[in-house]
Simulated assay, not measured.
Amino acid sequence: MVDPDTFFHDNVTGPRSGKDEDEAKFGIGQKVKLIKEIVNDGTYPHSPIGTLMMPKDSIGYIKSVGEFLQVIRVYEVHFLGVEEAPVEIVGCRENELEAMEDYKDEVEEELEWMRKHREKYYSKD
């Protein structure tokens, strides 16, 4: 049972009520920093609502990018070595994260290299 005096944290609709931008702000593998603490809003069943899930200024890496209700982008972030957190992987919104490095799309870089190689190879004919 939930304590009636428990403050419900609404990270989903609180800071933003509309659809997220079409393009994701962060990419898979990118290093990010948490700019505000993450508390359990009820979506994590193994801790009470209001439990600190990840402290502010924690450093992690984007593991995957998904959607909630088809309009809210959620980043699965893997935080390493944070002893005071009950979990290592937390779902975060864009407004809760800050990039610690520029994103490099390694797949796109490889495809570009292959395109240039083919142009060089086929232009000799």
Results as ranks from 00 to 15, higher is better:
Glu23Val: 15
Gln30Leu: 03
Ser17Lys: 07
Tyr61Leu: 03
Asp125Asn: 08
Val32Leu: 01
Glu110Trp: 12
Pro48Arg: 10
Ile59Phe: 04
Lys25Ala: 08
Glu106Val: 11
Asn40Ile: 03
Glu108Ser: 10
Tyr61Cys: 09
Lys63Ala: 14
Glu37Trp: 01
Thr6Gln: 09
Arg115Trp: 03
Gly60Phe: 04
Val71Asn: 08
Thr43Val: 01
Val82Gln: 02
Val2Tyr: 04
Trp113Leu: 14
Gly18Thr: 13
Met100Tyr: 00
Lys120Asp: 13
Glu83Trp: 04
Ala24Cys: 07
Val12Ser: 02
Gly27Glu: 09
Pro15Gly: 11
Val82Asn: 04
Arg93Cys: 09
Glu37Met: 06
Ser17Pro: 02
Ala24Phe: 05
Glu110Tyr: 13
Tyr121Glu: 15
Pro4Trp: 01
Arg73Val: 14
Lys104Leu: 05
Ala24Gly: 00
Gly42Asp: 05
Leu69Ser: 10
Ser64Val: 08
Lys120Glu: 13
Asn11Gly: 08
Val107Ala: 13
Glu23Lys: 14
Asp57Thr: 13
Glu94Lys: 03
Glu109Ile: 05
Val82Trp: 02
Pro45Trp: 03
Gly60Ala: 13
His117Tyr: 10
Met53Gln: 13
Pro48Phe: 05
Thr6Pro: 00
Thr51Leu: 00
Ala85Met: 12
Asp125Pro: 14
Glu88Pro: 00
Asp5Val: 07
Lys19Ser: 07
